[in-house]
Design a binder for these strands. Structure first.
Lengths: 296, 296
DNA sequence: GATATTTTGGAATAATTATTCCATTTTGGA
DNA sequence: TCCAAAATGGAATAATTATTCCAAAATATC
C-alpha cells in the first residue's frame, strides 16, 4: 500500500519512517474518541505540531465544542476561517470517517431521553429474567432517572406561582383519580398535617363535589395521560368560576394545562400503564410543604 | 386568494367563516413563536382540537423539546409515529415556513450548559432556605438517596417469598393508612390493571372489613412509624386465621414485622416530618407487577 | 535554487435531509 | 346514506450539506 495522502501521516496505520521529510508532529492516532472527555483530551494532545489550517480548526473547535452538535461543516469552517475541506480533513485526522460521525457523538451525548421502558420491561418479562429483584432494579432506576430529570427541568417560576395561589386559598380542593390518586391522597395527608384546609375529591358519585367549590378556594388538579375527564371537568369548572387552578400534569400539551393558572409538569418515566411517581411525589410534597409554611 | 389547503385553517390569515364545515378549533395563529417560552405557550394553546396525527406531533414535540435542535425531521417524525409530511404540516401550523426555520430557534438557543444533576440541585437549594425551589431540591435528594439505599439493602429472598404468597392468594387485601395510604392506593390500582383480585381496605368505619377476609386470601399490610394500630390489628387478625401476611414497613423491629410471613423493609430518607415514598413505591410496584405476571 | 513532499482551496459529486404535491382515506354533517 | 371538506401518507422533487478529489501553492531538505 503506497502512501496515498497526507492525512495518513497523522493516523493510526501510518508507517512512521518511510519518508524523507517530517515537518510536523507524528501523531499516530488511535481510534476516534467515543466520549466527549476523550475528545477533549485528543484535541489538546494533537493541536501542537499541526499545520496552519488544521491548527485553526483545532482551535476553533476547542473554543466552540458545544456548538458542534448544532452546526454544519460550512458554519464551523467559516468560524475557523478555513475552507470546508480543511475541516473535513481535521475530522478524519481525529479518527472519524467524516464530520457527520464526529457530530453524532455530540448529538447523542446531549440527548437526555429516557430509555424506552415499556419495551424494556416487556423484554424483561418475556426473557424470563423477570425475577422480582430484576423488576425492582428497573423500577429503582426509573425512579432515579425521573428525579434527575425533574431536577433539570423543574420550572421554578411556575412552582413559586403555584405556592402563592394555594397559600392564598381558603380551602384547597385536591383532585386526582386513578394513577394520580395516590399523589392526591398524599397531598391531602400532608396538607392535613400542616393544618392547611384541604379537601380530597374522590371520583365516586360523579360530579357532586363541584358544589363544594366556594369563592376564595383554589383547586389543585392532577392527571396524566390518558387524562381523566372528571379531573379536567372539575378544573375547568373551577376556572369558569374564577377560582385559581394549579395543574400537575405530564406535558404542557395536556388538556389540563389549558385550565391551569400555574402549570407544573413532571417528567416521569412511564411503563405502559404504570409510572414510578417518584418525581411527581417529590414535586407534590415540596409544593405542599411550601404552601404550609407560607401560611405560617 | 383562494383557500389553498387545510393548514391555512389554523394559521394567521385564515378567514374564519368562508367555509361550510368547522370540525376543529379555529386556532388562528399569530406569527411564529420567536422564543422558546413563546413556543411552549403556543404548543399548549394549540394542542386542543388538533386532528390525530398533528396532536401526536404536538405531544411528541412537547415531550422532546430539547431534542429539536439536534434532530432531523425524519427522526422526530418517527418518534411521534407519524410520516415526515405530518411533522412538516405541524411546523407550518405553528407559523414557521418549515422545519428548518423552527429548528433554527432551538439551535440558536442551544446551550448545553444545561447544568448537570448535581449542579442544578445545588442551585435549587441555594435559592434560599424555605423557598419552594429549595424544598424541591431537598425532596429530590431524599428520594434519590432512598432509592439508592433500597437498591443496596433490598432483601431478594423476602421479595420472592412475598410474590409467591400473593400470587397464590384468591384475593389480596391491601391495607395502609395515613401516610401509607398512597402506597396502598397505588398498589390497588396496579393490581386492578393487572387483573389481580384485590381489595383496598380503608380506615373509615373502623374494623368492619375484617369479615371480608376469607380462607385462601392474603393480606398486604403497610405501615411506618408511628405505626397504625388498625393496620397491625388487621394483619394480626389475618395471621390468627392462618392467612399469609406480607408486611411492608420501615424497620425489621416494626410491630408489623411480628405479624408478617414475608417482611419487606424500605429505607426511606425523611426530610423534615415527611418522607418521599420514592423507595416505597418502587418496591410496591415491583411487587405488584411481579405478582401480576406470576399469575399469568 | 531544485526537488520531493505536504498542505491547501475550491470545484465536482454524493449523500442526506427538507419540502411539496396530490391521490386516497377519513370525518362530520345533511 | 351520501356529499363536501379535512386529513393523511407516500412518492417526487428541491435544497442543503457532507465529502472527495486533484491541481496548485507552500514548505522542507538538499
Amino acid at each position: 500500500m503506497p502512501e496515498t495522502g497526507s492525512v495518513d501521516r497523522f493516523r493510526l496505520n501510518a508507517r512512521p519512517n518511510d519518508r524523507k521529510y517530517m515537518t510536523t508532529l507524528d501523531t499516530a492516532d488511535l481510534a476516534a474518541p467515543t466520549t466527549i472527555e476523550e475528545f477533549r483530551e485528543r484535541l489538546s494532545g494533537i493541536s501542537e505540531g499541526l499545520p496552519r489550517r488544521l491548527r485553526q480548526c483545532a482551535d476553533h473547535i476547542a473554543a466552540n465544542i458545544d456548538r458542534i452538535a448544532v452546526s454544519t461543516v460550512a458554519e464551523l469552517a467559516a468560524g475557523a476561517d478555513v475552507p470546508p475541506s480543511a475541516l473535513m480533513r481535521f475530522c478524519q485526522i481525529l479518527g472519524y470517517s467524516g464530520f457527520s460521525e464526529m457530530q453524532k457523538l455530540f448529538r447523542d451525548a446531549y440527548a437526555p431521553g429516557f430509555p424506552d421502558y415499556s419495551t424494556r420491561l416487556k423484554n424483561l418479562k418475556e426473557t424470563g429474567a423477570g425475577t422480582p429483584s430484576a423488576l425492582l432494579g428497573e423500577f429503582i432506576e426509573a425512579g432515579r432517572l425521573s428525579l434527575e430529570a425533574l431536577a433539570k427541568s423543574a420550572d421554578e417560576a411556575a412552582l413559586a406561582q403555584a405556592v402563592v395561589l394555594l397559600a392564598a386559598a381558603d380551602t384547597v380542593h385536591i383532585i386526582g383519580l386513578r394513577r394520580a390518586f395516590p399523589v392526591a391522597a398524599y397531598l391531602a395527608y400532608v396538607f392535613d398535617k400542616m393544618s392547611v384546609p384541604a379537601m380530597l375529591h374522590e371520583g365516586t358519585g360523579k360530579l357532586d363535589h363541584r358544589h363544594a367549590l366556594r369563592p376564595g378556594d383554589a383547586v389543585l388538579a392532577i392527571t396524566f395521560a390518558p387524562y381523566s375527564d372528571e379531573t379536567i371537568a372539575l378544573a375547568q369548572h373551577a376556572r369558569d368560576q374564577g377560582l385559581p387552578v394549579v395543574a400537575l400534569t405530564d406535558r404542557i400539551t395536556s388538556p389540563l394545562a389549558r385550565a391551569g393558572d400555574a402549570i407544573l409538569t413532571v417528567p416521569e418515566v412511564d411503563f405502559g400503564a404504570f409510572r414510578s411517581l417518584s418525581a411527581t411525589l417529590a414535586l407534590a410534597i415540596a409544593l405542599a410543604v411550601a404552601v404550609g409554611s407560607a401560611r405560617g
